[in-house]
Design a protein around this nucleic acid. Structure first.
Lengths: 127, 127
DNA sequence: ATTCTTGCAAAGAGTTTGCATAATA
DNA sequence: TATTATGCAAACTCTTTGCAAGAAT
């Protein structure tokens, strides 16, 4: 992989934010430093960084891909109400995966675990 | 909801197949009986049937929505390799949801549980 | 007669890709 | 110099929507 300023900024941003950003969010952030970067370049780099396992893609039920670091095998909870993505710790995920793999004969790819629910905030608002 | 032949066939098909069909699959099936039905009508009806909780939408990581019956709160396993969607029984899902809800403070919507892994067949092929 | 549904085609959203130019090795 | 990356715009895929015509209540 040849160096590029664009890719470096994209990688740094995805690795250091906790927001599980969409391509659009990455674009808006990197644009502050490289104003004429294109959305196509952002997508190309995000996908390439995924192939090299430097980041990973999280698919959520609303169809907008989000990206995240790969520090461990944590999973994700998607809030069906506000769309927020939160982490589920690696320990929790691995017990769940063991349990399900045992019952179903699937090999669960733990870092792709996505569960859908209603987050704390939205639960409060509902009352 | 006013009756329509189109909707009846769509509902019957989704309720009675085990393939978790995409809109396209539903379209191709219903077209055998109503050749000039349009894809737009299929989408409109699938969404409407979801609103009335007669069927449900399953979002998978490849972004193509799939549809399924609502007989119980079973979950789904998506095979990352071949794209197949298999059921996870309601019992398994509810233990997983209880476990995660307890650890994370989320209310898990159990019928939206999607886990991603490699299915039996693809595991075999890999060897 | 009123309301809902259809088929069709156009529009929409998110993402990918072709191409000439520019940067890296 | 050879290769890879970029910006731009066009293309692509899946899905939704506006509208006039048709079917159900």
């Amino acid at each position: 992989m040849k160096y590029s300023k664009q890719r470096e900024l994209i990688l740094t941003y995805v690795q250091n934010t906790k927001t599980h950003p969409t391509a659009e969010m990455v674009y808006n952030n990197v644009r502050q430093k490289i104003p004429n970067i294109s959305l196509g370049t952002v997508y190309r780099n995000l996908n390439q960084l995924c192939e090299y396992n430097l980041i990973r893609k999280i698919s959520t039920p609303n169809k907008i891909d989000r990206f995240d670091n790969v520090y461990d095998n944590h999973g994700h909870l998607y809030c069906h109400e506000c769309g927020k993505v939160e982490d589920i710790s690696e320990e929790i995920i691995s017990s769940v995966c063991d349990f399900i793999a045992d019952k179903t004969n699937y090999d669960i790819i733990s870092h792709d675990v996505i569960l859908v629910g209603i987050c704390r905030n939205c639960k409060k608002k509902r009352r």
